[in-house]
Computed example of a mutant assay.
Amino acid sequence: MKASDTVRITHAGYLLQVPDRGVHALTEYVTDDEKLFIVTHMALIEIDPSAWCLRVDGMVRRPCEITLEQILSLPQYEVTSVHECAGSPLTPLEAKRRVGNVVWAGPRLSDVLHACGIEQEASYVWSEGLEWGEFAGIQNQPFVKDLPIEKALAPEVLLAVAMNGRPLRAERGGPVRLVVPGWYGTNSVKWLGRITLAGTRAPGPYTTRFYNDLTPTGSRPVWQIAPECVVVSPANNDSVTSDRQICIEGWAWADAGVIRVEISVDGRQSWAEAELDERRDFGWQHFRFHWTPAAGEHQLSCRCFDAHGAGQPDASARNEIHSVVVSAS
């Protein structure tokens, strides 16, 4: 399904939209549509919902094409999940902090795959978007990502048709997008058009050339969201009143869930534990720390640790420690 009366490009090329105040705009548990980032590699497209269909093929016993009407007739589920961009694949060590927390709704991917009959040899699920264009010198290569079969069959993975209680807009990947809670947004393929079950990882540029991190033990796909947190309030360069208690607060998240958040008010020389809310579904967790500033300039930082004990790097990583500077007088 390419350029036609049913699929058209509404913006050609790379696009990024973020709130003017960045993370300091993210004051609510559920992020409103207008405060959630938009990023696309090749284009934004709009699809005629009446013409859309999802092709399921590869290592399945019953390949099929599923219409939107059929998708909507399946049992629908809601999952609250942090939604975070992994950052530019051209500069993977830069922290971008494009993030929000939303409520997705739609049928489970597992219900569709089981209905098609999964072959025993299938170990990966490839997902392909319907956009096309150019990115980083690559022309018209389909945006294909992959998931291990175990994650694809997890109950939280949805064929999303709605976000925050409203039908999924074209800019959000509608009419149907894949949603993979706990994993970076690059894996939640927009404008979903094809699902293929295979015995190997997908061979395209978005799984081979891009979105792989180098580690001491080799290359690792950019899949699970690493521990990360941000100070939402006070904002960077805010002025506060000295000798009067304020509340430092923000959000923390990780695929495995966050078990501890620490705050530094002295330029990372010392750390103290913050109060932390429990996680709901795969959503982010609110933290707060009460502090009485002395007069002067202060660097405030936050860091978190997930259920496996992993923490955040000081610098040079997409999830590096977040800091703000405030002045007290």
Score class of each variant (00 low, 15 high):
residue 212 N to H: 10
residue 192 L to P: 15
residue 211 Y to N: 14
residue 221 P to M: 05
residue 218 G to A: 10
residue 207 T to M: 03
residue 202 A to W: 09
residue 198 A to I: 06
residue 203 P to L: 10
residue 222 V to T: 13
residue 221 P to C: 09
residue 184 Y to S: 07
residue 223 W to M: 02
residue 185 G to W: 00
residue 186 T to R: 06
residue 201 R to N: 11
residue 219 S to E: 13
residue 220 R to C: 06
residue 190 K to D: 03
residue 183 W to A: 08
residue 217 T to C: 05
residue 208 T to L: 04
residue 186 T to G: 08
residue 190 K to R: 14
residue 189 V to H: 05
residue 184 Y to H: 11
residue 213 D to R: 13
residue 193 G to C: 02
residue 191 W to L: 13
residue 213 D to G: 04
residue 194 R to F: 01
residue 202 A to D: 04
residue 189 V to E: 02
residue 218 G to D: 05
residue 181 P to V: 06
residue 217 T to P: 00
residue 215 T to G: 11
residue 223 W to C: 03
residue 207 T to D: 07
residue 221 P to G: 13
residue 181 P to G: 01
residue 216 P to Q: 13
residue 218 G to R: 12
residue 193 G to I: 02
residue 186 T to N: 14
residue 193 G to A: 05
residue 201 R to E: 14
residue 188 S to G: 05
residue 211 Y to P: 06
residue 214 L to D: 03
residue 190 K to E: 03
residue 218 G to M: 06
residue 203 P to R: 11
residue 221 P to I: 10
residue 223 W to L: 02
residue 211 Y to K: 06
residue 210 F to R: 12
residue 201 R to H: 05
residue 204 G to Q: 11
residue 206 Y to M: 15
residue 186 T to I: 10
residue 188 S to R: 04
residue 222 V to S: 02
residue 184 Y to T: 12
residue 198 A to V: 06
residue 188 S to Y: 04
residue 215 T to F: 10
residue 209 R to Y: 09
residue 215 T to W: 12
residue 222 V to R: 11
residue 205 P to R: 07
residue 214 L to R: 15
residue 222 V to N: 03
residue 208 T to K: 12
residue 211 Y to A: 07
residue 202 A to C: 12
residue 187 N to Y: 01
residue 199 G to T: 03
residue 199 G to Y: 00
residue 204 G to F: 09
residue 212 N to E: 15
residue 193 G to Q: 02
residue 212 N to Y: 00
residue 220 R to V: 15
residue 223 W to E: 05
residue 199 G to S: 12
residue 191 W to D: 09
residue 203 P to Q: 11
residue 197 L to H: 03
residue 211 Y to H: 13
residue 191 W to R: 15
residue 214 L to C: 04
residue 217 T to R: 12
residue 193 G to T: 03
residue 192 L to E: 06
residue 212 N to D: 09
residue 200 T to N: 14
residue 202 A to H: 07
residue 212 N to A: 13
residue 219 S to C: 11
residue 203 P to K: 04
residue 187 N to Q: 10
residue 213 D to K: 08
residue 207 T to V: 07
residue 190 K to P: 05
residue 188 S to Q: 07
residue 199 G to H: 02
residue 217 T to Q: 14
residue 185 G to V: 01
residue 183 W to S: 06
residue 188 S to D: 02
residue 187 N to H: 00
residue 202 A to R: 07
residue 187 N to V: 12
residue 199 G to K: 00
residue 207 T to E: 08
residue 215 T to M: 12
residue 181 P to Q: 08
residue 190 K to H: 01
residue 219 S to T: 15
residue 198 A to D: 14
residue 215 T to K: 13
residue 182 G to K: 11
